[in-house]
Design a protein around this nucleic acid. Structure first.
Lengths: 126, 126, 126, 126
DNA sequence: GTGGTCTAGACCACG
DNA sequence: GTGGTCTAGACCACT
């Protein structure tokens, strides 16, 4: 369900957050659904429980999940707030990329078009 | 000429590398032109010389500059290789952003259009 | 496993890089195998951790290893690229040596033959 | 007559030594022939006189030239000693290269053959 | 004056 | 525990 890429530069806790958030916005995780316990997930992924704790704490801080003492961690209801947040971040990244492309004298839209074309060709092979 | 943003999360040496590379690809720094000495730049930016040294060493490793003991640091000639590398990176970032946008169900081109419109309005104020 | 020759003119960090690269191309270090930690290797070799850090950072920059915060340093997978690079360097050195020998009016192959003969004799003693 | 490559990694004084020694072994500079003065050569090459002094001092130390107070620097007579020294160095380099090639599992003689073949082809174009 | 190397030690992020 | 960044300061090689 959740998997870690040890070659990935990003810290493990961030990879976990990313995946939980994606599952929430895509609907794979529904409001009030229970997440695996810190210990169980740590066992399954063979990583340090502290790392899971950190991911869950940050998810709670962001309002994606809520925790109940002694019961566990659950998906919170305000999915749309999360979507807004993720879109805001995406927008920010796009803005910084656009700025960089312009500094380089490149038309970002042309790059995107090329990428989509390639994918159509590549898709047939894959 | 070079400045450091302490609010920026990126390490100082990386900010310096970024700026030197930009000045090279934009033509603000020409081949064989001398860079400020390690000690002088350290003074100007009020940071430790080791940090400058590190930035310069990495720039040399990447072929952007060349270093000569007792003389200084100079812009190297192969600018086009650097431009290619930076464009490759830009392309990679664009691809990952495009993927993320699609996962979110967002049309990245619309986002870019909106950004450019905003800037036109903002440009009048600034 | 790794040792430093203080009579060697080359810097310590370069000696370390050289040895790690050799162990990788020879297969003594396998992909994803963990390297000794910065602090431990520094202790073992009785040198400053910064020096090890520098060697590891350069090895990562060259794609020989990959570094993960909080976990350690690991051999990366693309060994063949490293072998190609090392062979290219060897070829370059051979070319420059050949040129020098010819300028001196010496047949480099005779020199090599003599060296190998000597070694056979020396081998019996050692 | 003597020229400096500022892109060359080697220090300037070493480049000068190298060239003087070559001219001696090749016969371009004859015993007791006078070298340009420190000041004049420094002017011609547009470099610091200290650098020329250092080159000359090392050349004298190695017995390649001799200096006479107030008269200048002259090529010394023992050319054969210099040739022996240069051959010894060449031999050393060959030995270290051979060792490296063997560690890499490469037959150095094959490399040399390939290099000479290439040069014959390349020579026709150049 | 220039850069290059190394040491010592601090603080932070990650697991 | 791990690596990453930065500071402070030393010493050396080169111009």
């Amino acid at each position: 369900m959740i998997y870690i890429d040890y070659r990935d530069k990003r810290p493990i806790y961030e990879q976990i957050i990313e995946q939980v958030e994606r599952m929430v916005t895509s609907g794979a995780l529904q409001p009030d659904e229970q997440l695996p316990s810190v210990r169980k997930l740590a066992m399954d992924l063979a990583i340090n429980p502290n790392t899971i704790s950190r991911a869950y704490a940050l998810l709670e801080q962001r309002g994606v999940i809520y925790s109940r003492q002694g019961r566990g961690n659950f998906i919170s209801g305000n999915v749309s707030a999360l979507q807004d947040e993720r879109r805001r971040l995406l927008r920010e990244k796009a803005a910084s990329l656009l700025e960089e492309a312009e500094a380089e004298g490149i038309d970002l839209r042309e790059v995107l078009n090329a990428l989509q074309e390639e994918r159509q060709k590549g898709g047939l092979q894959a």
